[in-house]
Design a binder for these strands. Structure first.
Length: 762
RNA sequence: GCCCGGAUGGCGGAACAGGUAGACGCGAAGGUCUCAAACACCUUUGACCGAGAGGUCGUGCGGGUUCGAUUCCCGCUCCGGGCACCA
């Protein structure tokens, strides 16, 4: 209605575990199950009147989409962005598959099934998302996204700057321990070193007398869940062990004992840390538990009663750093020294790990490679893509992927050597499917490339993206990675680095505080409302119930609120048809042809104010107040039409037609129907120009001025909007009520903010 | 522990720049229409005191700034979310 070309696409992220779990339970093939559910959903969306461009509809389980998914994977493989390695990974026993780090909640459970995730060493596929860590971190600043989402992404990427350097191991020729630290300036205070239990040097540094103890410790840690390992609970003296070995601190050539501790992670940094108890609280605690010495290298301020001190202060016990107070300067000097002596270097570390994308499940997009005993990992030739999922599969109760037992799928020939080879049976994480769909939407018909560059240049980036806060890290991080990775491979426009310019995180409708889901049985079907009060009443309710960013809990009262929305639409209908059909409360005899009276002009001005208000409410996502404003206008119109003076036809017509246009995006069916009845020969409502308020009519001649005495409202007076300060004070002091409130006292001070307010202070 | 967000009538919420707290809707109460009901329409509805006019209190709690604070500042409580041995 405002003349913009808006692309509002729709698609279905149709791979994933729910369909496969249903297959295991009922024996219905996931494709059959999925297609049926999509049809149901589409039917609801259509009845709801959602205005999508259905021509562009995508399904991620569609062979065409799978093909491009696989083509992209292979391009990433060529570029080294996709790789396979053995790594300790998150295994969800409930889902019978591995998970990405992003899919494990803070409490160590699976974000999907809620099962406790365990660690396994497995050969898995990864995307090198870490190679974009820095760019993705820096680009966050330029995004018009909610700050909390940006904060979450920053935390997740977790950049930390420091140094990495090597410590020779005493008595082991050539062996050295690499450590990463953010505080190289405190290295003179290192009194011990801690390795992760999985560290490759553990065996080498362990002395014979400590071997039994170390082995027992390593064994125990291996059996521990990640939650136990990463929780700060438990006595520290049970969480580490002395190896018997020593390393040399290169800064001052001091011998430092080498310990193991369960909380040192092999997956972060180098898997080894230098411990400086004086300037790190964790190291302090560990030192206290094992009776290790503490050497302060930063003098704490006078009166310091704490333990580790991490602030600024003059360096002590640090030879050539002594006396430097500024931490940044000391760090720089320490790093310079490391570099000059070829011991270490400046280093940036990230919390972000590479994205583990392989899944040991059936209902996903197959990873298009095969394993040849001679040629190793070989891509399935592009002309053979997509690799499809076989249909004749049996779903095993345990959830083991049927692909692993499907001979015809499994057995293939190597395109390189012609010998027998095995197909990869892992499928892709469904987050892969949703990481580039927005680029495909620009031209889903292109049969030559996953993304049509011209179309993508025309539409991308997405001006306004809407999604739930649950995607703050998962989907939104992956999509940002994919957009860059595709752009850098020439598969998407090179200049588009960010997929979503603006982000709005909408709230959820919950029931008894939890997300609605079929498995919980707390779904509310829209169908029953379509059949009774109609789609528009339900739509209006959604907009009216509260700010779109807030959650709303569905309760017994909700039906009554929907009824209220339905009532409003009934009132609108009767008002809009008053000259066409008589109703019980309104009829055409209430309308008269006449010259404009003052009352008519006031209604007219109110309509202009309504237009102004609704426009700005739309702009600021305040749909609930836009609806409220329309309700208020309609109430006013009822009083106007029912008044003894009756109503002027032209005035009512302008008011009603304006309201129909303002409400057209919210309640499209009823407004379009009413428009057609009122204007059978005109263009349809949704082709009409959006209403504009006349600035002249927004001007008010008079306004209500509040008069306060000592900050309390004592009177409200009608005054000219142009009233000056002296006149406002004069009028205020002349008020009967104000004089009564003053009770003869003399005003000590009068604050005038004409024309809105005068405050008399005594 | 750290970092965000929030707390307003019986309920969902409004107050967009420090200036009328409670728009709009739900619920509730009363009325008109009707044989009756439903529908519709009208009125009232933050609490307390008062017959009424009117008054006092009131935006999680305690302070502060200001002529004036739901709004700004300080200190808490509770709720929700994120991060949490990341070296």
């Amino acid at each position: 209605m405002q003349g913009y070309a808006v692309l509002s696409p729709i698609g279905f992220d149709s791979f994933g575990l729910p369909a496969e779990n249903a297959a295991i339970k009922t024996g219905i093939h996931p494709r059959v199950f999925t297609d049926a559910r999509i049809e149901e959903l589409k039917s609801s969306l259509r009845r709801l009147g959602a205005s999508y461009d259905w021509r562009r509809e995508l399904h991620s389980h569609d062979p065409e989409y799978m093909k491009w998914n696989q083509v992209i994977f292979q391009k990433f493989l060529d570029a080294g962005l996709a790789y396979r390695r053995n790594a300790p990974v998150n295994w969800c026993p409930g889902c019978q598959t591995v998970l990405a780090n992003e899919q494990v909640l803070a409490d160590g459970t699976c974000e999907r099934s809620g099962d406790l995730v365990t660690r396994r060493d497995l050969e898995q596929w990864f995307f090198r998302i870490t190679s974009y860590a820095d760019e993705m971190l820096e680009a966050l600043d330029g995004l018009d996204w909610p700050e909390r989402v940006k904060v979450m992404q920053r935390n997740w990427i977790g950049r930390s700057e420091g140094a990495q350097f090597a410590l020779p191991v005493e008595g082991v020729e050539g062996a050295h321990i690499d450590v990463f630290t953010t505080r190289p300036d405190t290295a003179f205070g290192m009194t011990f070193v801690v390795l992760a239990p999985e560290h490759p040097l553990v065996v080498a540094v362990t002395t014979d007398s400590q071997r039994a103890e170390v082995e027992a410790f390593v064994e125990r840690v291996r059996g521990q869940s990640d939650i136990d390992r990463q929780s700060s609970e438990g006595p520290l003296d049970k969480r580490g062990v002395f190896t018997g070995g020593y390393a040399i601190n290169p800064f001052n050539s001091t011998r430092v004992p080498i310990y193991l501790a369960d909380y040192v992670l092999m997956t972060y940094g180098t898997g080894a840390i230098m411990a400086v108890p004086a300037e790190d609280q964790r190291d302090w605690d560990f030192a206290a538990a094992y009776g290790l010495p503490v050497v302060r290298t930063v003098a704490p301020p006078a009166g310091w009663e704490g333990e580790a001190y991490t602030g600024d202060g003059p360096r002590i016990n640090s030879q050539w750093l002594d006396g430097i107070t500024d931490t940044a300067e000391a760090k720089q000097k320490a790093i310079d020294w490391l570099v000059a002596n070829r011991i270490g270097e400046r280093k940036v570390n990230y919390r972000l790990r590479d994205w583990l994308l392989s899944r040991q499940r059936y209902w996903g997009c197959p990873i298009p490679v095969l394993h040849c005993p001679i040629d190793g990992i070989v891509k399935v030739p592009e002309d053979q893509l997509p690799v499809l999922l076989p249909d004749d599969v049996e779903f095993l109760p345990g959830g083991d992927s049927p692909l692993r037992h499907h001979k015809a799928f499994l057995e293939t020939t190597c395109p390189k050597c012609g010998g027998p080879a095995q197909r990869e049976t892992d499928t892709m994480d469904t987050f892969v499917d949703s990481s580039w769909y927005f680029l495909r939407f620009c031209d889903p018909w292109d049969s030559t490339a996953p993304v049509n560059l011209d179309a993508a240049r025309r539409w991308m980036a997405v001006d306004q993206y809407i999604g739930g806060i649950e995607h703050a890290i998962l989907h939104l991080l992956y999509a940002r990675f994919y957009t860059r990775a595709l752009a850098d491979r020439g598969l998407a426009p090179a200049e588009i680095r960010e997929p979503f310019s603006r982000l709005f995180t909408q709230g959820m409708i919950t029931m008894e505080g939890s997300k609605m889901s079929k498995s919980k049985g707390n779904l509310v079907s829209p169908e029953k409302y379509f059949d009774t009060v109609g789609a528009d009443s339900l739509r209006l309710f959604h907009l009216f119930v509260g700010p779109p960013g807030d959650d709303f809990d569905w309760s017994e009262q909700t039906d009554q609120m929907i009824e209220g929305c339905h009532r409003f639409l009934g009132r609108l209908w009767r008002m809009a048809t008053v000259s066409l059909d008589a109703s019980r409360s309104l009829d055409s005899s209430s309308l008269v042809e006449r010259d404009e009276t003052a009352a008519d002009a006031e209604i007219d001005r109110q309509v202009h104010r309504l237009i102004d208000r609704v426009c700005s409410d739309y702009e600021r996502w305040s749909y609930n107040t836009a609806v409220a404003a329309c309700m208020e206008m309609l109430n006013t119109l009822y009083r106007y039409v029912q008044s003894p003076e009756r109503a002027r036809t032209l005035t009512v017509d302008f008011a009603v037609d304006s309201m129909l246009k303002l409400l057209a995006p919210m309640v499209p069916h009823v407004t379009a129907e009413l428009w057609e009845r009122r204007h059978p020969d005109a263009e349809p409502l949704h082709s009409q120009a959006w209403p504009a308020a006349d600035p002249e009519k927004l001007k008010q001649d008079t306004t209500v001025m509040v008069v306060q005495v000592n900050g309390k409202v004592r009177d409200k007076l009608d005054v000219a909007t142009t009233i000056g300060e002296t006149e406002a004070v004069e009028v205020a002091l002349g008020s009967e009520r104000v004089r009564a409130a003053l009770g003869g006292r003399e005003p000590a001070k009068v604050i005038a903010r004409p024309p809105k307010l005068v405050n008399v202070v005594v």
